[in-house]
Amino acid sequence: MTRDIADRDIEAALADPSAFFAQPQDIVTHPRLSREVKLKLLRQWEQDARELSVAEGEGMGGGEESMLGRVHLALRKVEGAAGA
């Protein structure tokens, strides 16, 4: 479930995007976030997903669908929106 994000929550969301958004796509489609904030959130989520991917590679993960792939898809959508 995606939480409605107020301006004061952006800093907290930047620290842990998955606490505020269920999926990276929820950031892409959020109507109140600027492109800049969307990119920051997705890049943080990407970093978190990379760290999880490394942990899974070392046998510490849980086998869910790759979050890193979902984050990359969302990043491409937001980055491509600048040219639209």
Results as ranks from 00 to 15, higher is better:
Met1Cys: 05
Met1Trp: 05
Thr2Ala: 13
Thr2Asp: 04
Arg3Gln: 15
Arg3Ala: 11
Asp4Val: 15
Asp4Ile: 13
Ile5Leu: 12
Ile5Gly: 01
Ile5His: 00
Ala6Met: 14
Ala6Arg: 15
Ala6Phe: 13
Asp7Gly: 09
Asp7Arg: 09
Arg8Phe: 03
Asp9Leu: 05
Ile10Thr: 02
Glu11Gly: 07
Glu11Leu: 14
Glu11Ala: 14
Glu11Lys: 15
Ala12Gly: 12
Ala13Gln: 05
Ala13Val: 00
Leu14Asp: 04
Leu14Thr: 09
Leu14Arg: 11
Ala15Gln: 09
Ala15Arg: 13
Asp16Gln: 14
Asp16Thr: 09
Pro17Asp: 12
Pro17Asn: 14
Ser18Cys: 01
Phe21Val: 02
Phe21Asp: 01
Ala22Gln: 05
Ala22Phe: 04
Ala22Trp: 07
Gln23Ala: 12
Gln23Gly: 01
Gln23Glu: 07
Pro24Ala: 11
Pro24Ile: 05
Gln25Tyr: 03
Gln25Lys: 15
Ile27Asn: 03
Thr29Lys: 12
Thr29Gln: 05
His30Leu: 09
Pro31Gly: 09
Arg32Lys: 15
Leu33His: 07
Arg35Asn: 04
Arg35His: 14
Arg35Tyr: 11
Arg35Asp: 10
Glu36Phe: 14
Lys38Ala: 06
Lys38Ile: 04
Leu39Cys: 03
Leu39Phe: 06
Leu39Val: 09
Lys40Trp: 11
Lys40Asn: 13
Lys40Met: 13
Leu41Lys: 07
Leu41Tyr: 08
Arg43Phe: 13
Arg43Lys: 14
Gln44Glu: 15
Glu46Val: 02
Gln47Thr: 12
Asp48Trp: 06
Asp48Tyr: 08
Arg50Lys: 08
Arg50Glu: 12
Glu51Arg: 10
Glu51His: 07
Glu51Cys: 01
Glu51Trp: 00
Leu52Asp: 15
Ser53Tyr: 08
Ser53Pro: 03
Ser53Lys: 06
Val54Pro: 03
Val54Asn: 08
Ala55Glu: 14
Ala55Gly: 10
Ala55Val: 01
Glu56Trp: 05
Gly57Trp: 01
Gly57Thr: 03
Glu58Tyr: 01
Glu58Gln: 14
Gly59Arg: 07
Met60Ser: 12
Met60Phe: 13
Met60Tyr: 11
Met60Val: 13
Gly62Thr: 15
Glu65Lys: 09
Glu65Thr: 08
Glu65Val: 07
Glu65Met: 08
Ser66Glu: 06
Ser66Thr: 11
Ser66Phe: 02
Met67Gly: 04
Leu68Gly: 10
Gly69Trp: 00
Gly69Thr: 02
Arg70Val: 00
Arg70Asp: 07
Arg70Gln: 14
Arg70Tyr: 13
Val71Asn: 02
Val71Gly: 02
Val71Lys: 05
Leu73Tyr: 08
Leu73Asn: 08
Ala74His: 01
Ala74Ile: 02
Leu75His: 06
Leu75Trp: 04
Leu75Glu: 10
Leu75Pro: 04
Arg76Asp: 09
Lys77Pro: 00
Lys77Ala: 15
Lys77Gln: 13
Val78Cys: 09
Glu79Cys: 00
Glu79Lys: 12
Glu79Pro: 00
Ala81His: 06
Ala81Phe: 00
Ala81Trp: 01
Ala81Ser: 14
Ala81Cys: 01
Ala81Met: 02
Ala82Ile: 01
Gly83Ser: 12
Ala84Phe: 07
